[in-house]
Design a protein around this nucleic acid. Structure first.
Lengths: 211, 211, 211, 211
DNA sequence: CATGAATGAGTGTTCATTCAT
DNA sequence: AATGAATGAACACTCATTCAT
């Protein structure tokens, strides 16, 4: 067991600290989080944290940058992959990915944190807007245009489209992770995503019987 | 402005303090907010706050309860109103109300605060869930059932329906108040609501030409 | 006994705190001094200090400015006093004042503190140089010129004169307050000043027998 | 510069560390000085310092002892050399040595440090008093007695004599190293020493014309 | 009712010192 | 001998809360 204190020297320290910080920030909020708790969660002493990050705020920034990287990459991958071929399947897959991600506390923790703290840290808001929102916006716009071009989607407003697709996943996250809602009939994110896709694709109004 | 003589009606103090607290909590977050700032915003001394609220947390609770009252009343009003008559118009009005409310910082401040702090204050989460979410859920379920009964809506999943309606407004709020997005083409919440209604009602897929 | 805690509200608080700070800084040095010790010495809690001074360094600055004020006044009084009439008596009085002041820990504390910390706080060094040294320099130069004009003093170098007059008092302070020297034969500062005056006025070399 | 290969003669380490410590202590003061800065200045890692000195305070002690050795030797040398022959020249040389030493930051650093920190470290005060002050006192007393015996000096008070000789050099140091005085007419320490010698030897009062 | 001086517990950050390598 | 990661005790400063007036 090389688990003695003062022993290991993995180059992964900063990552471990960010993991711990994300966990503590998510639970307590940035202002209420204590550096000592982060340290304990990372298996370090309080002082050791400052060997890797110059301040508590630096951990928050590091966190956001790391998470933005992940999300941006996933979003771009979604764009490039199947969407152009089959916009309808692309939309279904995107919704599944969104609902699954948002329902997973490990993935949604960073976005929730950003949403909660961006008001106080303009740098974070700007960074996230450029690195995540812009990319997601581009991806969804591309999906919509592909569908419209193939006559699979009607030419709806792009901004409304984005809110119609991402908003429900965001709301799902709020309901499941912030308010611990009693497990609904449809707790499974994939099922919820499919139900959403049905509404978005076919609309609420009954189709005229294909006469 | 009856604001000068007679030292202002003192019986309105708690309301004024809650107004100030909402403002400061929204800007700084609960943990980072200073009671002295709330006092200054309310035109009182720090000590005077404690004549009306026993603690900082009590202000947060008071805030949430007050806002929940407002929201619950609005929600119930919506149910009772035109929905049964004309579900489609009911949906359009609901969306307009949601987008307009969420885009107005004065109205969305409380829900945003709840979303941000509910994780740390289970009492608040529970209270909000019961007093706001349950009522909103009931209202939207009633709207859906009315529409289905009148054969104006397809019988879609109720939980997906809720997320499809409320989620986009929630996302709209996040985009406009947290990240100061550059004003889109559709900054007007009512227009955005109408575009959303179009998508939700008619779906993304083109309708078959009416026979 | 109006000595309960949380009671008195003398406007003299800042002065009391500066007294306490001077005492603690003198004993421990600025860096090693603890704000809590200053607070205790001032009969206050740690937090109360910050109602009057924004930082530990602000207390040091306040201290220096206050002491500089005292010293400047004393120096100017000396200039204006008897010097012009009788330069020799003026010199004797100046030396007595200097030795007496420097030997009194309550008076020499501030200059010693400035000397010890000026290297780290350029603002203090500059301030002291302008507010104390320049004035003292002017006073001593005036004394010398008065004596020379009256043919009571030889026209010696002014800077050497200043060092010859002030230096011994400074050394006396160092010996008595920093190193607790065993009480010499001449512990009395006035006697020491007179012996110094004798040396400075008549020189070390024997005078030629009066013709 | 044999400074590259063979990792430098390791037996000189303690001396190098003391050099670095003197430099850092002088700039920052003992309490504010960081061991890491000393280590960097000595070209070592923080931990290595503790192979040679058990604590930060031990470096201060080592420093003082080393410097006291230097000063004591110089002082004794001055006594033994020319003073007995020609007390007047002896005084002039002593003053030149004192002013030159005190004006040189490299030499005055240790005495200044002792003066600044002696209050907090009685051991240092005692040590310095015995090893430096006593010896200097003896040397100056011997110089005075030699002069008096040869009828070159008047029989003035020995303690006043010491303060009259050493004090001005001490003041000169304070003025030039602590407060960065604008270069006076007499920046050269030797000139300043000569001007001082003139005052001390011949006094401020004009000599009666040798009838 | 209202004030604001005062308290004291709490937290971010620093740094002398240790120790596994 | 040397390193530098790690520790833990401090300490400056903040702020919710109290209380004499």
């Amino acid at each position: 067991m090389p688990e003695n204190s003062r022993r290991r020297r993995p180059e992964a320290r900063p990552e471990e600290i960010l993991d711990a910080a994300l966990s503590v920030f998510s639970e307590q909020g940035f202002a209420a989080a204590r550096v000592e708790d982060i340290a304990r969660a990372a298996g370090l002493s309080k002082g050791a944290i400052y060997l890797y990050f110059p301040s508590k705020e630096a951990m928050l920034n590091g966190l956001v940058e790391r998470s933005a990287g992940h999300l941006a990459k996933t979003a771009e991958a979604m764009v490039a992959s199947g969407a152009p071929r089959d916009a309808e399947t692309g939309l279904r897959n995107l919704l599944r990915m969104l609902f699954t991600s948002m329902a997973d506390p490990a993935i949604s923790a960073a976005p929730r944190l950003v949403f909660a703290e961006a008001g106080r840290f303009p740098v974070i808001a700007d960074f996230y807007r450029r690195q995540v929102l812009e990319i997601a916006r581009g991806a969804m716009r591309a999906l919509l245009e592909a569908g419209v071009g193939a006559n699979v989607f009607r030419p709806v407003d792009a901004d409304a489209f984005m809110r119609a697709v991402a908003g429900p996943a965001f709301a799902h996250m709020a309901l499941t992770t912030t308010f611990t809602l009693p497990p609904d009939t449809l707790t499974d994110p994939a099922d919820m995503a499919d139900a959403l896709a049905d509404i978005l694709l076919h609309g609420l109004k009954p189709r005229a019987p294909a006469s």
